[in-house]
Write a protein that binds this DNA or RNA. Structure first.
Lengths: 243, 243
DNA sequence: CGTCCGTTTGAGGATCATCAATGTCCGTGG
DNA sequence: CCACGGACATTGATGATCCTCAAACGGACG
């Protein structure tokens, strides 16, 4: 698997429940989750793995072999630049699918941030299964479509000139992701400042200054560095939208 | 159709040939093009339209009704910002599918740059057809995956700090798109400077100065503003990769 | 021939990256 | 229990880059 991995300690209860693909729509509103049968079937094909923090799942350039589904934990997908800098292309949350490849090679490097539970499926097995089950395939299509929208949003984010605006958009993105989980008014920020910087395309220092500004202006309060409270919703939204 | 359109003058020869979805891979190398039967079937479901330049196909926020396939011409997909600025999210080349929506509404505005031939399919009809034909659906899945990769690349592009580097990456993207068409050494640049600026996230002036620099350094020669010649391939590639 | 649109060129100002130093947290070892 | 070390984060000063404003230029088209 191209990387050190946590061996052995899988949860012995087979949790086929956790393979849901997230709600999206291609217009039509349908039952967005997988059927019980589909989950069971996917669970049959997939192998669960429990992965410690800061573990590389695969590297850019590695031969494509598995597609991964994140059911628990946080993973980053990033590219190493010549300069040594890293650009995080996506954060993979629970219910996210990853393993993007081109010409049979992974495009990015994937690394866990927190401990994570991943299900891996051989890519050709998955492809075959998708061909067999058009309904399942449709969920994947929706999922990739959602990822496409997110990528476009990130392009808009990175394209902004102002640091605080970028940070605001970033927090908004996090809020969207955790909205379903019912956190209201406060936003979990599971990643480090450095990782935020690598995602929004700023230097670490700029991120630091931007968070400080947001706090000073009374728009957002940070506590322990990994939780953000939205104090002034109106100005926060204005910042996010203001471009 | 939410927009003025060129009425009547469809080519009377039914060109089912032109509905190909472009080559991509999810790892497996397959016959990348649609089968003749699939093309015919798609052509049955789709309505061709010949659209003049600078025509709005749909606006962001419009209710989703059609999915479009571009078979000829150039379309831009962009978002209007509060400031009045525009950020181009994607250029749609022949064989591209577009009509990205969220919650039943188009996410971006689509506008033709050149005259174009578009096929439109009612989104729910397409969805139904995809459910029926898992193979066809797989091609769409690959297509969206390709778009995702491109979007990620654009994020990297926009994230760069140097204007010339961004322009170089942009030209490289164009070259990739026209590579199949056999132009060797020279790159068609069908869009305006302003549109390039809106895509790479620079001001019009910065784009102008960057092109000038590329020309002065003998890396690329521009003629008539819509064609670029790669003079120094080595330094060009270095610029593209140098981050 | 004049207007309009897109582009080029120039000068000044704002913003962020970079470099450097200090500060904080946490785990390790004495 | 405390001191040390390392990773990460903050804060400050300087410089480079690009945006903005402004003016001139060019071709297309009436």
């Amino acid at each position: 698997l191209h990387a050190k991995r946590a061996d052995g300690n899988y949860p012995s209860t087979a949790p086929d429940i956790s393979l849901d693909i997230v709600p999206v729509d291609m217009g039509k509103s349908r039952t967005h989750l997988l059927t019980a049968a589909q989950r069971r079937h996917l669970a049959d094909l997939a192998t669960p793995m429990r992965v410690p923090p800061r573990t590389i799942v695969y590297r850019q350039g590695d031969a494509l072999s598995w597609i991964f589904i994140n059911t628990d934990g946080l993973v980053k997908s990033f590219r190493e630049l010549r300069s040594g800098a890293r650009r995080i292309v996506a954060f993979l949350f629970p219910r996210d699918v990853f393993g993007l490849a081109e010409n049979g090679r992974y495009v990015n490097t994937a690394k866990t941030i927190t401990a994570a539970t991943l299900y891996r499926i051989q890519h050709d097995v998955l492809a075959a299964e998708l061909q067999r089950d058009a309904d399942l395939e449709f969920r994947f299509l929706c999922k990739v479509t959602q990822k496409l929208r997110e990528a476009q949003r990130q392009t808009l984010l990175v394209g902004r000139r102002d640091a605080v605006g970028r940070l605001a958009m970033f927090l908004k993105m996090l809020e969207r992701h955790f909205a379903a989980t019912g956190h209201n008014g406060w936003i979990p920020v599971p990643m480090s400042r450095t990782e935020i910087a690598d995602y929004v395309g700023l230097s670490l220092e700029a991120v630091s200054r931007a968070t400080r500004k947001l706090a000073l202006q009374g728009i957002i309060a940070f506590e322990d560095g990994h939780t953000a409270h939205v104090l002034d919703r109106a100005r926060f939204n204005a910042l996010v939208a203001a471009m």
